[in-house]
Design a protein around this nucleic acid. Structure first.
Length: 420
RNA sequence: GGAGGGCUCGCAUAGCGGCCGAGUGCACCGGUCUUGAAAACCGGCAAGGGAAACCUUCGUGGGUUCAAAUCCCACGCCCUCCGCCA
């Protein structure tokens, strides 16, 4: 959630942020009204409660007629306290409901606009020229078949569309990517974590995934669990309701991720670019708010380091305001070159969520002035299927074999993946 | 799935319906002492809102009462034992 102080002191800033996100700016004024009502209700309740406490205390000392009179008065007061209390509770939940709907305040540096309005920050590496090399690149589905690494038919047979099996070299590729990712994250000071992937509503809500993104999360109705779409959720909630005492805290979570992909019918139906279940290594940082900007740059750099190690051409984009998640004030995506699509496609993403998630999850740190919400940031180190796509397509050879990037060889044990 | 036990300020514990927002020990912070440290002693030390008075919070939600950490109900979580199982 956003800082109520900002809302009270500079509502225009919040309205503007809502506007460039394509979210409802009227919420701001509704919340201002609700906030005032809430504070009035609290004051009214507290005055009555103080009176009641005082009167109650005098009961013990009084006796006889005097006592009877006090009890009578106290009884009547008790009813009024009860009424004021429920009015207060109502006003509070009304204000909270509105507050939870307002998204984090966009970084003014972020490009304004929708999905298409991103800004390209840089290009790294050069896409291969297959024409010069004299052969037509195969797509990852085809190479996956040749190597017996990816089986989408059986995935569909068993689980439906957007499911797949990684087999043989495909499965080994996942292990190698994960091990390389965890090894480099550990070296950079991250604590490796394997988190739960079923979480309670509070964790989902706290990370901001139950608003507009709700349609994309799997929910287990019977047990009221959510399947996480990213380990960002359990990692953020890891320190829920805590006052942490040493910052920054950096975690590298390895987990399965589940996405309903609602509203993407017909998009990326071939292959494993867009799937319901995949594994991912995610970086997650808790830091002081004043360090968030620098940390965001660091996360992006670690993502780039990984891409560089995989020897894949890519570009970095600054995602536009309308395309950010509710929690993020700014987001950078790395898009890998996919030869058969003749396009750059998102493979990793890093977001600065400032104190937005920490306020909802009640995660604070202490300094000289008191306790304050921490900042949280996240970034993908490697999302397995998309990285496999990028590797297979970019490093393929005419016979369908695939050159293994240098950095991965120690983890995979071979320097080429050969047709099965 | 069955049977018990428990959830109080970082940890461990004490708490008769009003004198309890709550005692004690450990940890932590500051000080005295010391060449330095330890020990000892003194002081401080839960969180949130509020300028303050004051208000809220003893797992969560309800109830009884003028008044609930304390009584009643429901739920959640944890632990132990039995059964089943990766």
């Amino acid at each position: 959630m956003i800082d109520l102080k900002v809302l009270r002191e500079d509502p225009e800033r919040v309205r503007l942020s809502q506007k460039v996100r394509g979210e409802n700016p009227e919420l701001v004024d509704q919340l201002l009204v609700a906030d005032t009502a809430r504070r009035e209700a609290i004051t009214a309740f507290e005055a009555l409660r103080a009176e009641q406490n005082l009167l109650s205390k005098s009961v013990g000392a009084a006796k006889g007629d005097e006592k009877a009179a006090i009890l009578e008065k106290a009884k009547e007061l008790s009813a009024r306290v009860k009424a004021a209390d429920s009015a207060r509770a109502e006003a509070e939940s009304a204000a909270d409901a509105l507050l939870l709907q307002i998204h984090n305040l966009i970084d003014p540096e972020a490009p304004v606009g929708g999905e298409e309005d991103f800004v390209v920050l840089e290009h790294i590496g050069t896409p291969r020229d297959f024409t010069t090399e004299g052969f037509e690149p195969k797509d990852h589905v085809e190479i996956g078949k040749i190597l017996k690494a990816i089986d989408t038919e059986r995935g569909a047979k068993v689980s439906g569309s957007r499911f797949y099996y990684l087999t043989g070299p495909g499965a080994l590729l996942e292990f190698a990517l994960v091990n390389y990712a965890i090894a480099s994250a550990t070296k950079a000071g991250f604590t490796p974590v394997i988190p739960p992937v079923l979480v309670k509503p509070a964790a989902m809500e706290g990370t901001g995934f139950l608003g507009q993104a709700a349609e994309n999360v799997f929910h287990l109705e019977e047990d009221d669990f959510y399947l996480v779409g990213t380990s960002e959720v359990p990692l953020a909630a890891y320190h829920m309701d805590e006052i942490v005492d040493s910052l920054p805290l950096r975690y590298a979570g390895y987990s399965s991720c589940f996405r309903r992909e609602a509203g993407t019918y017909g998009k990326d139906t071939r292959g494993i670019i867009r799937v319901h279940q995949f594994d991912k290594v995610e970086m997650f940082t808790f830091c002081k708010p004043e360090d968030a900007l620098a940390e965001h740059k660091r996360l992006l750099q670690w993502e780039k380091d990984f891409m560089n190690a995989m020897e894949i051409p890519y570009r970095v984009i600054d995602v536009a305001s309308g395309d950010l998640g509710a929690s993020a004030i700014r987001k950078f995506d790395i898009e890998a070159w996919i030869p058969t699509q003749n396009a750059y496609r998102e493979v990793t993403s890093t977001s600065n969520c400032t104190e937005f998630q920490a306020r909802r999850l009640n995660i604070r740190y202490r300094d000289e002035e008191g306790t304050k919400p921490v900042a949280t940031l996240n970034g993908t180190l490697v999302a397995i299927p998309r990285m496999i796509v990028a590797i297979l397509e970019n490093h393929q050879q005419p016979d369908g074999s695939v050159r293994v990037p240098e950095a991965l060889r120690p983890f995979l044990g071979v320097d080429t993946l050969l047709p099965a």
